[in-house]
Amino acid sequence: MAADFFDALKLRRSIYGITKKASVPDERIESILKDALLHTPSAYNSQSARLILLLGKSHDELWDAVKDTLAKIAVSPEAFARTEKKIDGFKAGYGTVLFFEDQAVIQKLQDENPLYKDVFPGWSLNSAGMIQFVVWTSLAAEGMGASLQHYNPLIDEWVQKKTGVPAAWRLLAQMPFGVANAPAGDKSFLPVEERFKVFS
């Protein structure tokens, strides 16, 4: 049974030790992503978020492509060795969710609402952050660890060729996930009193 909302919120951490195991069937993972797309809010109900789920060979190929891309621009063998270890950790996971925002949708809203044209890109990123949070928290509630990565735009061309997505789909983040084999690290919290005010 899934955790309640705030229990799930507390479970959602950056988990880097993940395995090629899932705690739920693929169909459940797909259902989570579809529900996130349907029920995460967006400005003007634009529904500009786009998701791709990579499993199995496709998941492995993504992280091989990330590694190959970064190897070509590495500043030193030592630096790349640390990067390679990190990427291998993502590849060790069960799957990856790719998060996009459809720029054609945003451009249409800008054209139709010129008074707000300058703020639609920011609102799009607000929506993107929400759907990333929804997916991440939902995976945590189902017993899986995940982290949010940003190897775009370095891998944009590879992703476009691999998936055939429209050029208007802007890649924003990658979320490798799987059953955790290591806990999240310690997390410190600033005093809530410094971050929260009430006026009445």
Rank of each mutant, 00 (worst) to 15 (best):
E61L: 15
Q149H: 11
L53G: 08
Y16L: 14
Q103G: 01
S76R: 08
L109C: 01
V179E: 09
L37D: 08
Y44K: 15
A49Y: 05
S200L: 14
L62Q: 15
L139I: 10
L139W: 08
A146I: 13
L62P: 12
K67Q: 14
D60N: 13
P183H: 04
V134F: 04
L62W: 15
L154G: 07
G185Q: 01
L109Q: 01
F196Q: 07
K85A: 12
L62T: 15
V66L: 06
R12E: 09
S58W: 03
G93T: 11
S46L: 05
V135R: 03
R12Y: 09
E112L: 15
L125E: 12
V105W: 00
A104E: 10
A140P: 00
F199C: 05
V97A: 08
K86Q: 11
L190D: 09
S138E: 07
R50A: 00
W123R: 06
P121K: 08
W63R: 14
V179Y: 04
S14L: 02
V159E: 09
I155H: 05
E84N: 06
L98Y: 06
W63M: 14
A167G: 07
P166R: 11
E101R: 00
E157F: 08
T96M: 14
G95H: 09
K108H: 12
A79S: 09
W158G: 10
D60V: 14
L38V: 09
E112Q: 15
P114E: 04
M175I: 05
G122Y: 11
L70Q: 12
W169P: 01
I131A: 00
D68C: 02
L51T: 03
L37E: 13
S58I: 10
S23Y: 01
E78H: 04
A22R: 05
Q174V: 07
F6S: 07
L37Q: 07
Q103N: 06
A168S: 15
S124M: 12
F100Q: 01
D26I: 10
K197Q: 11
L54M: 14
E101M: 00
F196W: 06
V198E: 11
D68E: 09
D102N: 04
W136N: 01
V97E: 04
L37F: 09
F196C: 06
F177V: 09
M144S: 06
K67M: 11
F133M: 08
N113I: 14
